[in-house]
């Protein structure tokens, strides 16, 4: 456990907790971006450079921007007036706290049997590319088909039905 882990973990937790609790939706997405950058830094800290930069490209670059566009197009940037009752929110937080308690108990009781390799694995983008093109080529093709289908599906779903598009 290094000091950098605790700093980055604090940034990530603060960012995500603010994203889930703030009133203004644009502020929510901005703090979500902070949390996702923290997660990417954690990936870099763990030695997975490629995954860390993919995280920044996909989440910070694409998903956050997409969420901001959706917020603007649905005019939900102003704070919502009809909040759910306090008991409803309290029960949701209680459920999440229970889930965390169970997970933390499981992790702490299994901590002796967890693996702990001390040497940082050296993995280059070259190795990842070779593995993608040989061992994992079928999942790669499936992901390509999935992304194409998602692109077409998202365009069709967001298309205006009432216009002359039919």
């Amino acid at each position: 456990m290094t000091i950098s882990f605790f700093i980055i973990a604090a940034i990530t937790i603060v960012g995500t907790a603010a994203a889930m609790s703030l009133k203004n939706l644009v502020h929510c997405v901005l703090s979500l971006t902070l949390g996702l950058v923290g997660l990417a830094l954690l990936f870099l800290l763990l030695g997975a450079q490629f995954v860390g930069f993919t995280q920044i490209l996909v989440y910070v670059g694409a998903v956050a921007i997409l969420a901001v566009f959706a917020i603007m197009m649905t005019r939900s940037a102003e704070p919502m007036t009809n909040l759910p009752p306090a008991s409803f929110r309290l029960s949701g937080v209680l459920i999440a706290a229970t889930v965390f308690a169970v997970l933390a108990w499981a992790i702490s009781s299994a901590t002796r049997s967890l693996p702990s390799q001390s040497s940082q694995p050296e993995v280059s983008v070259n190795q990842i590319g070779v593995a993608l093109m040989h061992q994992f080529v079928l999942p790669l093709e499936v992901i390509g088909v999935l992304l194409t289908a998602a692109l077409v599906g998202a365009a069709i779903l967001a298309m205006d039905e009432t216009g002359a598009s039919r």
Binding site: T16, M20, P84
Partner: peptide
């Protein structure tokens, strides 16, 4: 686990 719980709490409590 904490991140998962934060996401779960948000998905359960927010109405947007």
């Amino acid at each position: 686990a904490l991140l998962f719980s934060i996401g779960l709490a948000g998905a359960l409590t927010r109405r947007n």
